[in-house]
């Protein structure tokens, strides 16, 4: 069974997966008409920002056991064993956000969805694109990702690749083969920039800060 595997170090932050996910869950399944649908389709995958604003694709891990499933008050969250997918039944969901409190990855959102009764706010998260998979498709986020930060493969294959990578990293020669020098350069630059933002200004820059007016209270504490 294939599953979506996330490789955050290859995420370029282009957010194409978000767009593809929203479109895949729209009525029209096409970008242009999808944006005029009501409710407006929304992504189930969210590209967050890492410490130096690098991309970080965050999607449901379909945990087993799943904390959201255990926390669900009305029993709306279930596991489909054959596809290793944790699903939310929008008809049973009562929008209590107990799953938001339980999900350690913060991947569940609350909004109207075309799968639910009109006007009803429900918990929404990744469904592994089961509808696409049934028609021999792959999850939309994976299809959209050109930098292979999202792959659709068996866990065995993913583990093997990871094991190979660890093995290579033991070899100094292999480790020196940078994955992508331009990408590494950009990220090193962004890291350096971030450190500058958060590093305290040198003490002799106090003068640079200027003189607060003595008769003016800083009211906004």
């Amino acid at each position: 069974m294939k599953q979506v595997v996330v490789h955050p170090e290859r995420c370029v932050g282009c957010m194409q997966c978000q767009v593809a996910c929203a479109v895949a869950h729209s009525e029209a399944k096409q970008l242009v008409p999808a944006q005029f649908e009501s409710p407006r389709p929304r992504p189930r995958i969210h590209v967050g920002a890492g410490p130096y604003n690098e991309g970080f694709p965050n999607r449901c891990r379909h945990c087993d056991p799943a904390p959201c499933l255990l926390a669900c008050l009305p029993g709306a969250i279930t596991r489909v064993a054959e596809t290793a997918t944790v699903m939310i039944n929008v008809d049973t969901c009562i929008n209590c956000a107990s799953c938001a409190m339980a999900c350690p990855f913060g991947v569940i959102r609350y909004h109207e969805d075309r799968s639910a009764q009109a006007g009803k706010t429900v918990a929404v998260k990744c469904d592994n694109c089961l509808a696409r998979q049934r028609e021999d498709g792959i999850p939309a986020c994976v299809e959209a990702c050109l930098s292979a930060a999202l792959t659709f493969e068996t866990l065995d294959a993913a583990y093997k690749r990871q094991t190979d990578a660890v093995a290579r990293s033991v070899s100094a020669v292999a480790a020196a083969e940078a994955l992508a020098p331009g990408w590494a350069l950009l990220n090193a630059h962004k890291k350096a920039r971030l450190e500058l933002l958060t590093s305290p200004a040198p003490s002799d820059e106090k003068r640079a800060a200027g003189n607060a007016r003595e008769d003016t209270h800083v009211r906004h504490d």
Partner: peptide, 28 residues
């Protein structure tokens, strides 16, 4: 839930804590 997991698993928070105040906070 991300914050709750930090509490429940007693994960040491290194770096600047203000980051946890941002609504889009993630483990990364």
């Amino acid at each position: 839930g991300v914050l709750m997991a930090l509490i429940q698993n007693r994960i040491p928070v290194a770096g600047r804590r203000e980051r946890l105040l941002a609504p889009g906070f993630n483990y990364r």
